[in-house]
Structures are given as structure tokens and as C-alpha cells.
Amino acid sequence: MSAASGSGYYIPHEAKWPIVGSIGLYLFFMGFGKLLNDQALGTPLLVAGSVVLIVMMFGWFGLVIKESEAGTYNTQVDVSFRMAMMWFIFSEVMFFAAFFGALFYARTFSGPWLGGEGAGGAAATNAVLWSGFDYIWPNNGPGRVGGDYQPMGWFGLPLINTLLLLTSGITCTIAHHAIKDGNRTKMVKWLAATCLLGGIFVLCQAFEYYEAYAHLGLKMTSGIYGSTFFMLTGFHGFHVTMGAIMLFVVMLRGGRKHFSAENHFAFEAAAWYWHFVDVVWLGLFIFVYLV
């Protein structure tokens, strides 16, 4: 976006896309809910909602890109966008915090209590309700919910995934420096590399899930271990996918001669997001796989 300094804070009139977005969300989640309940019309609503949402995103982002390229936004608008992205990412951090919190709670509190360690009724909990249950992490609970399974080791795919994501962080930064130097072609190249690494990560993750289900007996239903494992890695994988799509769009826009050395907020937003996803993965790698 170019900062046409002097022109004032841009306040658009007549935003049509938000209401489309609401309708899209509504259809999507009504469909999803019905699907979960095996009610009629689930899938059609879900598909319709997705279509509306995709149309909305194309429309809304397209409009913003057009305005940005037309120099509608001054630096102050740019700051608003930056703050919005920053705090949005913070809210995402808190979303993950809930699941990490669940993991820590289960590992440091409820797990040992079920195993009979701790004050209060822990000893009785174990002796009366779950005698014979020894707490060690990972576990699928005293009820051995989901049956036998093998935990996912950190060596192999997860380690490769870590390296992939870390590398992608570097390539992303190289791309950032490139655009800062005004070298758009280089930016596109390194972004392509970043997207590729992200893509491979997602594929590896999918393969890991396949392994878990097919060979390790590790499922989402495998007690608390399976629950935290799949929810954390699953939401993370979803975020990687979103981040990769964002970077991909930025790359395409770079190909269309968007962005300049001074103005490339969309890139930066996507890059922040990518780094956020990266950091979350490090947390995952340590707390879900390693320790």
C-alpha cells in the first residue's frame, strides 16, 4: 500500500461484506451442528456456508487490496491495521493457552490425583475408585479409554517438522528483507520456499496422524493424552494451513507487482502470523512430544 500522505484517515462507507460474512458463518455453523447431530441438511448448509465465506473473503480482501493499491490508506490507517493484527494474534495465543493449560493441569494435577498422589481425597480416589492405576505420562486414564496405544515419540517426523518450520521462519525472514530492499522477485522466490516448507509440514503432519491411527492405536479418543495431542497439534496444523494460505496469497500478489519497500503490511501481517505459528509449534514440540 502506498502512503498518500496528506489525505486523511480513510473511513469507508457502506460495508457490504460483513453481513455476507455473518450469513456465511451462520450457514456454516448451522450445517456443522446439524452434521454433528446427524440431522438433515447438514452437508448442504455446510457447503453453502463455506462458499459464502470464501466469496466473502475474496470480496472483502479484494476490496481492501484494491483500496490499498490505490493509495487510499495513509500511515495512520496502516497503524490501525498493524495493531489489529497484533492483538488478533495475541487472542490466538490465548486460545492456545487454554489447551496448553488443559495439558498442564492434567499432567500436574488431575493425573497424579487419579494416581493417588496429593492431599485431600487423592489417596482415596485412587484406592476406592481406581485401584491399580499408576499415574505416568502419557496415559489414557484409569479407564484406559480408547484402548491400548503407543505414544508419539519426538524423534523422526516431529523433529523433521520442527526443522521444517524453523527453516520456514528463516526463509520468511529472508523474503521480508528482500522486499525491504525493494527486491520483489527475490521476495516471491523465498516466499515460495516458505509456502513449500509449510505445505510439507502439513503433509508430514497428516502422515503422522495416519501413522497414529493406523499403527500406533493413538486416536483422539485415547484418553487425555489423545485428546490433548490431537487438539493441540490439530489446531496448530489448522493455523499452519491458514498461515500458508496467507503467505501464498502474498506471494501471488508479489507476482502481480504489489508491495513496495515501504509498504507491505499484508506481507508483514502474514509473516507475524507465521512466526506465531512457529513459536506455538516450539511449545508443542517441547510439551507434547519431548517431556
Binding site: 495465543v93 492434567a106 484409569p142 479409554v145 484418553g223 487425555i224 487438539m231
Partner: peptide, 30 residues
């Protein structure tokens, strides 16, 4: 805090529909 709430109800959703054990002792949750 709202995202934390969103996370909490999401766990309810998966406990209910996808067989996770966040809030069930038998599966090691609470």
C-alpha cells in the same frame, strides 16, 4: 479471556461429539 472461553467450550464440544476425555476422569481428565 474470550479466546480461553472459546477453547473451553471447544473442549466441551469435542468431549461431547468426538470422544475426547478432557473432562472425564476415566480418560485421565477432570
Amino acid at each position: 479471556t474470550i479466546p480461553v472461553f472459546a477453547g473451553a467450550v471447544t473442549m466441551l464440544l469435542t468431549d461431547r461429539y468426538f470422544g475426547t476425555s478432557f473432562f472425564s476422569a476415566a480418560g485421565g481428565g477432570d
